[in-house]
């Protein structure tokens, strides 16, 4: 069988096809297959991997366009998913700058994490000397988001990032902000919510592709919804996104129960933007 791998040597992009006997790799994971190719066919093939047990997040790659954590994906699962295809296309994660072959640049992601101030600032009743208290319900509320391993799969799948990276962050960054904002020990959730609002919180388009493929079954889209609700509750309700959300609320809950789509665009965008958009279309 064949693996077509998207290569980049620092200067040029090209595709390279590797032919591998199915019996050599069918018991392996996708990471095992990449290691097999590197160690037996092409030592110049570059990718990153560390723990090989789905906890360090180093080996996210794409197969046939979709992102997978390579060590967490058995080849048999891929055979099943792609109906015994005998050719697979392996590419680096999408929406990242490629450094070489399947290795991508994580530095911008770290800086995005920095923006949402992910370090918890505890309530004043707690102290460094005696720690905190948290009940089971409060713990359960955040523990799912803590499973995030920063593998980048959600970012690769994100349609919003593919369209325009300039005014949005990787979905896991919002998950990070939500996990700390939603923590019962947090003194002021807005420390973490505010930077998400100024960094694209309302630009998520609810496609839920991030949720679909997260190897840890986290829904960044839902975390974004949580952040939005919290932002509005705390008074950050001006702008296009909140106006759009409010329109739904007034129509569906307070008013007739039917969404008035004619008024929706006007109420969301405001008169001048709506007119400008109409003009742009022509």
């Amino acid at each position: 069988m064949k693996f077509i791998i998207d290569r980049f040597d620092g200067k040029k992009n090209y595709q390279q096809t590797y032919t591998v006997e199915k019996k050599d790799i069918e018991a392996l994971t996708l990471l095992g297959t990449l290691l097999f190719i590197k160690q037996h066919q092409d030592i110049t093939l570059n990718f990153t991997a560390s723990c090989r047990m789905a906890i360090c997040g180093a080996c996210g790659v794409r197969v046939n366009g979709h992102a997978y954590l390579a060590c967490d994906t058995k080849m048999t699962e891929l055979f099943e998913e792609y109906k015994d295809a005998d050719t697979f296309r392996i590419s680096p994660l999408s929406n990242y700058t490629v450094i070489s072959d399947l290795a991508v640049d994580w530095e911008p992601s770290i800086e995005n994490l920095r923006k949402v101030k992910p370090g918890l600032v505890a309530k004043s009743e707690f102290s460094e000397k005696e720690g905190c208290r948290q009940n089971q319900e409060e713990y359960d509320r955040i523990v799912g988001q803590w499973d995030c391993i920063l593998c980048g799969v959600c970012a690769s799948e994100c349609n919003k990032l593919s369209a325009d990276r300039s005014d949005y962050m990787e979905p896991f960054v919002y998950t990070r902000a939500w996990k700390v904002a939603n923590d019962s020990r947090t003194k002021d959730p807005m420390i973490h919510v505010k930077p998400t609002v100024t960094n694209g919180l309302w630009n998520c388009v609810h496609c839920h592709e991030c949720t679909n493929r997260c190897p840890k079954h986290i829904s960044a889209a839902e975390d974004i919804a949580g952040l939005r609700a919290m932002a509005m509750r705390k008074g950050l309700n001006s702008g296009v996104g909140p106006a759009h959300a409010k329109s739904f609320y007034t129509d569906l809950v307070e008013d007739s129960g039917r969404l008035n789509e004619i008024r929706l665009a006007l109420r969301t965008e405001g008169m001048s933007t709506a007119l400008r958009a109409a003009a742009n279309k022509e």
Binding site: K129, Q134, Y139, D183
Partner: peptide, 20 residues
């Protein structure tokens, strides 16, 4: 001392019935 410090920094330890 480190356990309390980590808790204070935001580490989500599993909790007992008293929230400790």
């Amino acid at each position: 001392a480190a356990i309390h410090e980590l808790d204070y920094l935001g580490m989500p330890f599993s909790r007992n019935a008293k929230g400790e």
